[in-house]
Every structure is written in C-alpha cells, then in structure tokens.
Amino acid sequence: MATKTYLQALNEAMRQEMERDPEVFILGEDVGQFGGCFGVTQGLFETFGEARVKDTPITESAIVGAATGAAAMGMRPVCEIMFVDFIGVALDQLYNQAAKMRFMFGGKAKIPMVLRAPQGAGIGAAAQHSQSLEAWFAHVPGLKVVMPSTPYDAKGLLIAAIRDDNPVVFLEHKILYGIEGEVPDEPYTIELGKAKVQREGNDVTIVATAAMVHTALEAAEQLAADGIDAEVIDPRSLTPLDIDTIIDSVKKTHGLLIVHEAVRKGGVGGEIAAQVAEQAFDFLDAPIMRIGAPFTPVPFSPPLEKAFIPDAGAVVGAVKQMRG
C-alpha cells in the first residue's frame, strides 16, 4: 500500500469520484488553478477543466446554495468553504435549506452534496480561521457530519460522503493535512456512522475526534508506561454517531473520557457523555470526563494558542484523576 498524506488522500478521493461519475463537480473559492487555499484540490482543474472545478467569487451563500440547488437536480457537488469559520455568512443555505429540504418536502427531494471545510487551530490563524464548529452541524437534523483523523479514513470517508444522498459536512483538520499513512490506490468507502477503535485497551475509554485522536494516542502511550491500558476510539462521524461501539468499550473499561478541540462547553462531548450515562451508567466506575478547549475564541499568540489546544498531558491528567 502506498504512503500518502491526508491531503493527498482527500485529493485522490475527489479525483477518483470525478472519474467515476460525471455528475460530481467541485466549486469553491480558489479551488481551480490555485488548487485550493490548502492545496486539497490541486491538479483537479488541470484534469477536469473549469466546467467541473469551478472557481467562485468570495460568496459563501451562493456557493452553498448553488451546491444545494444542483444537488436537488441530482448532481453531486462537492463545495469547499475555505475555512469552516466562514460558514456563518452562508449558514442559512446550509441549515435551513440543504439540511431541511428533504424533510420539508415530505421525502421527495435528495440533496447529495458535500460541504468540505478545514477547521481547527494550530497554525496561528487566530479567532476567525481556527475554530472547530462540528457541534453546530451535529445539532442540525438533516446534516451528516464527518471528521476524519487519518489519511486512510480521509479517503474512504470522503468517497462515501460524495456517494451519500444527503448533505454531508466534511470537516478536515488543517493540522492533519501533512500527516502520512497507508492509503490504497483504488477507491474504497468507509461507511458513515462506524467508529474506529484506534487503540485497544482495557482500563479506560478515550473518545477523541480529528487531531485529538493523535493527542489521545500519544497520551495512551504515556499512560501505558504507567500501567494504564487506554482504548482510543475515533467516532469518525458525529451524525450518524456510532454510540454502540463507544458503549461496548465503556462496558469493558468502566471509564470514559471524551476529548475534542472544540470548546468544551456545548461540545459534542456533552452529547456523547449523556448518551453513555443514559445507556451504561451502571458500568461506570467514575464520572465521565470531558476535555475541550476553554470557553474563549481561538487566540493568536503562540503560547496562548498552545494553551488553548488540549494536549496529551491534559488527557493523561484527566485519566489519572478519573482513576483516583
């Protein structure tokens, strides 16, 4: 199997889907010759031309709306929002239009579109270019929400998202674009709604998303040195959410820590914690804990940004606290 970066895996997913299905097309700001702000669509314009790799004006509502309307007509648009933070100016088209059309129309419409957007902190991009907003999208019925953490998952999940008949918000963590991993050359899909156990363990369950999966794995190694065997689970999609895999793990480990980079308050960690408490309370030996960013905008200055992003030390500390 070839080693590819997360970014290359995403690019390959789009390329292969565009080769497979002429109704798949890309639109967004600077996605053409420029190749996308982070380079994710690089080379696609050269192969597929401007009819299928469409540079838009800086006009997020019109981008999301064009994707929605084209999807309602049966096409499979993949639109890029340059930074997820920009979704605010286009939110109506996503959450009131794309997400609700099927339900409002009594099941008579399908909106097979993907909205790709990088999110997350770590590159000094400050408050309006660094947020993790997955909880917003996970709160909207009608949207699917996907957050890959590895190159392998990035490709398989993006292909699955493109083939899905629903609007899928596909959140890429920008700090992960350069990470490498094994990625098959041929197209493959990963079913949305299937968590992945990234590390098996018996003593505590750590559910982590996106870049925090890697933080949790780093913490798990440190915990192992102290004789604590952590299981690390990446839900990979928040809607649908594979709560069963998490609950099965909790029944085995009797402890749950959820780690995400989004601010802790109102984050998806609360939802996962509540579902586990409702369904597996008797299996817990300690209160469920959550780690997330503090309730502040993402700061700019490097020491502040570093302090904002949860790190392995925080994960280790929380697990030790849970275990008394």
Binding site: V64, G65, G69, M104, A109
Partner: peptide, 29 residues
Amino acid sequence: HIAAVELGILGANGIVGGGGPIANGAALA
C-alpha cells in the same frame, strides 16, 4: 414549504432571500 420537485417547484421558502442561491444551483445543473 410546499414543493413538487417533479414539477420543477424547488419549494416555497420560509426564509426571505433563501431562493436565489438555490435557483442558481438548478440553473448550474
């Protein structure tokens, strides 16, 4: 929210100004 996609009716819309971007999408298709 009455819609009839089979008749080309992509929906009434409760959001003032909601329809323009969607009409573009249909036209793009």
